[in-house]
Design a protein around this nucleic acid. Structure first.
Lengths: 166, 166
DNA sequence: TTCTGTGCAAAAACTTTGCAAGCCG
DNA sequence: CGGCTTGCAAAGTTTTTGCACAGAA
């Protein structure tokens, strides 16, 4: 079973914003104020945020951005793999490029950087974990079904340690 | 690693509709024509269907149902665990009660009936698989994080064998 | 017959699109 | 300066809600 490395989102360092800028610039996209603001907001958020949440929070912070722009910015960031749509929470979350959409490289060796989400029902926070044990399971499925795996999503719902202790 | 049992949704037998009726009746809910129609439709569908798809398909079949009712019916069925919202495809799929929302029983022994979805990007079909190998991985996560797991979703995206051969 | 559940219609929420002005590089 | 991006406004979609009638039990 693989190594387990819990990473709480609040603990992210700010280098992601810069990393995001490089990805955008490297793809001929501009690093604008709204884009940077969304990236930084999602990076700091302990939980996935929906388009409406993002819009409201940025306005609260005094950043002038239109609702339509939030959608456009999210579309661009998602296409660049800088943001990931967290499914069951219908929200978006910052996502470092290496874990790019959970997509595995085609015929490349196993990607052990895949991460999963632990969503706490009580406090709503999402913890991110890294654990390559899933890879073996997926390999088994590939072997038995002939299914060619391009990506996966594993989301675990429950109660985090802190909330259990209350 | 657990036994792997691919189950194509088209192969479902019709007992599910009856099973669904019992669950509804058992909870003081009525077994109405619209509810039965939605359950039977999802049971037969090889892929997840959105609310709009369900509405249109039922109308095509000559079943008179309102769009609003589709939403209300889906809400009821989902609450009863008879239907499962397939995340990445933003659709719903029939779901036998035993796998009820992928929720594990609290302190009960490991539930090996959990299933996962294999979503083919090419043909859009969803295969359902049973494989208890994931359980071990989740147990590891529980052990290391103190997270109390209530349920999980594993969705694998890729290309099915048939589409690969084209 | 009783009361849940439905159809219809309208409202609310969410998302997309067009266009002129703004801003990044 | 040139063209990608944005704000604004309006249209398009999806989902929810209110109410009187229909149909399960």
């Amino acid at each position: 079973m693989g190594r387990f490395v819990p990473v709480h989102h609040e603990a992210h360092d700010d280098c992601f914003a810069e990393e995001a800028s490089q990805v955008l610039a490297g793809n001929g996209l501009r690093v604008t104020r709204p884009r940077r603001a969304v990236v930084e907001l999602l990076e700091r958020s302990p939980r996935p945020m929906g388009a409406a949440d993002i819009h409201q929070e940025l306005r609260t912070q005094g950043i002038r951005i239109d609702r339509a722009s939030v959608y456009r910015v999210l579309a661009v960031l998602e296409a660049q793999g800088l943001v990931h749509r967290v499914l069951s929470a219908q929200g978006y979350m910052a996502c470092h490029p290496p874990t790019h959409l959970h997509l595995h490289g085609g015929t490349e060796p196993a990607d052990h950087s895949c991460h999963h989400h632990l969503v706490c029902r009580a406090c709503g926070r999402t913890l991110e974990t890294h654990c390559d044990g899933l890879r073996g399971l997926i390999d088994t499925i590939v072997e038995r079904t002939g299914f060619q795996v391009e990506g996966h999503v594993l989301e675990i719902v429950g109660t985090c340690r802190e909330c259990r202790q209350k």
